[in-house]
């Protein structure tokens, strides 16, 4: 089973429309759909603007919260009532028997998504589509491929939006560390075939950085950070290693996934970090390597007008041209028809 996630950089960047396009272009496949938040509602919970809705054809497997499926305008067959909780009740696995609109609210954390993926894999599914929620990404590193959505809702400056996606592309182009996910669970220093663990629960601030620096053994080629870290601490580490000069052997820092790197800070700071890295003789690699499949753009943004939100739009042609000019990956405008191929 292949798994594909749709990630938003903000609210209203076109996750639902992208998912709808995927569902449209993949009609004859055995598909399952879930989400890590709440999507497909009629009116935005915050801006009160109408939202695109999710329409499901007959035969699609949907994993969504009890309350959502019970209120859905479809007929369905319940395959399994899971014990995965959401604020809207436990997740139900159902097969759509009469097409219609459904709101998707699925597992909202890593371990629950893992559990659900196992259940779905057992149903003989070709393709699992995982809808994002807002700008949430953390559970998405478990998936095979990711589609990023961005647009006017994140920022109304096309240049900034483009630069951000360039950073995303760079982050996803970093190599796999060829380390089994189960082999390390704590920060470790690798020297030859030796793994020396370091007792740190997080790698976030100056205290954590100080401890880590002290622990680095004289001979060490790789540092594995298989847990949550902040860009601040990571930058500090790279600067420290750089300042130790060419005598230092550390040439690789292994992170859990590109998703974790994205989570560690904003796009601007991450770009600086990557630039700092580029002439340090150190590279980043990942334990998990989901592939960046495509980027979709949405010119729409909720514009604050007279104290309430109205629909505003960026120049779609300029937006698409700017993106395509700087990115090597596929870019689509969600407002126009496009097809995916998996």
């Amino acid at each position: 089973m292949k798994s594909v996630g749709i990630i938003g950089t903000a609210k209203n960047t076109g996750k639902t429309t992208t998912l709808s396009a995927l569902l449209r272009s993949l009609k004859n496949r055995k598909i399952a759909v879930t989400g890590i938040g709440y999507d497909g509602e009629e009116i935005d919970n915050i801006t009160m603007l109408p939202k695109p809705r999710l329409y499901f054809e007959k035969g699609i497997i949907v994993a969504t919260a009890a309350k959502c499926i019970l209120n859905a305008e479809v007929d369905y067959k319940i395959l399994k009532k899971t014990s995965i909780p959401t604020p809207l009740g436990n997740v139900f696995l159902v097969e759509i028997t009469k097409p219609g609109l459904v709101v998707i609210a699925g597992p909202n954390r890593v371990s629950h998504l893992k559990e659900l993926m196992k259940l779905i894999a057992g149903l003989g599914i070709d393709l699992l589509l995982v809808d994002g929620s807002l700008n949430r990404i953390s559970p998405m590193y478990l998936l095979d491929e990711l589609i990023f959505t961005t647009g006017g809702s994140k920022n109304t400056d096309i240049k900034i939006l483009t630069d951000e996606m360039v950073t995303v592309e760079k982050i996803f182009s970093l190599p796999s560390a060829a380390i089994s996910p189960d082999s390390v669970s704590s920060i470790s220093f690798v020297s030859g075939s030796d793994f020396i663990p370091c007792d740190l629960a997080t790698f976030i601030d100056d205290d954590d950085l100080g401890i880590l620096k002290k622990c680095i053994p004289d001979r060490c080629e790789k540092i594995i950070i298989p847990l949550f870290f902040s860009e601040y601490a990571l930058t500090g580490l790279v600067q420290f290693l750089k300042s130790r000069g060419s005598s230092v052997a550390v040439n690789e820092i292994v992170l859990l996934s590109p998703v974790h790197l994205l989570l560690s800070s904003d796009f601007l700071r991450l770009d600086s970090l990557l630039r700092l890295l580029s002439n340090s003789g150190i590279k980043f690699s990942y334990v998990f390597t989901p592939r960046l499949k495509a980027i979709t753009i949405n010119p729409f943004f909720p514009k604050l007008y007279n104290y309430h939100f109205v629909a505003g739009y960026l120049d779609k042609d300029e937006f698409l041209k700017s993106m395509k000019g700087k990115l090597s990956i596929d870019v689509f405008n969600v407002k126009e028809r496009f097809d995916f191929d998996f």
């Binding site: 709440y38 909780p85 604020p87 807002l134």
Partner: peptide, 12 residues
């Protein structure tokens, strides 16, 4: 609301 909590990713 429960819907907003779900969208934000909270347990409750």
């Amino acid at each position: 609301t429960p819907e907003l909590a779900a969208e934000l990713g909270f347990d409750k």
